[in-house]
Amino acid sequence: MAGTWVIVEQRDGNIRKVTYEMLSEAKKIGDEVSAVVFGKSVEGLASEFAKYGADKVYAVEGDVFAEYNTGAYVAQLAAMIAEYSPNAVLFAHTFNGRDFASRMAQKLEAGLATDAIAVELSAGKGVFTRAIYAGKALAKVEVATNPVMATIRAGVMEVVESAGAGAVVKPAIAATAADVYQNIKSFVPTVSARPDLTEAETVVSGGRGCKGPDGIKLVETLADLLGAAVGGSRASIDSGWLGHELQVGQTGKVVCPNLYIAAGISGAIQHLAGMSSSKFIAAINTDPEAPIFNVSDFGVVADLFKVIPTLVTELKK
């Protein structure tokens, strides 16, 4: 085998945790692990990947890579795959990662397993477990095209520190400005002190039972105390209490934090699909028959408007 490549997810040097999750998982497989990082100037990040077992770090540098764009990234990675023949290439299942992986796979006329939650790699073959129907079922699939490619869901694999050599490799630059077909006009980061919904250790979500912005405010207060991300069920998104990007469920985000707190969410199957793989689930709802209690480790049958303020006080003790 010629090693497992992990495509780094970063913006302005801020590395997404899923990168470390993928490196740790790749390390378990035992083959040589390489991080592949694209950017304007990224060599300095190499030691970050060595901490999680990267034997090599391919630093792909150039102005054309300053911002993620499919054309230049795919042209470059295609050239590198041809030169170095990795056995497998793992991408994060982020918006960028799935865009990159899909176009790369088609260019190579190869298979691709997206949103994988379990990985088994061997020479020339990958077996991946994927959540389908937003987690209502699982499919185990085999990809045997070369290289084996998959996108990996954030938050599922454990981060394990293990020292790797982190030897920097500067590959030949094959992409040029002519490969760029998306003209990026602007990027406006989401201004939030809270963690990203799909990367957060804890998520506090509000639903119909929040009744309006006042209830959402309580959800946010609890989230901020816990350093958590805020999410919502479809009811609170459709009512305009929260932005669409915060919707948890089958037509929103699928999350798997350590702790998920559902406040005023009944637990429609659409919502359960997006959060039931969380490690711990707590629910606060006035209806004792609410389906959310069927998946909750700790259920509170009471009014969130009364529970959350006391909970905040108790947690601060």
């Binding site: 006329e109 077996v127 699982l138 499919a139 185990k140 004792p288 998946v295 009471a302």
Partner: peptide, 25 residues
């Protein structure tokens, strides 16, 4: 096809845990 489905499975069923019905505080 480039990807072969080996099998389908249901996710491990989540067991309902503790449920408390009491004074909100």
């Amino acid at each position: 096809n480039k990807v072969t489905i080996i099998e389908f499975a249901m996710p491990p069923a989540k067991q309902a845990g503790i449920k408390v019905e009491d004074d909100p505080e």
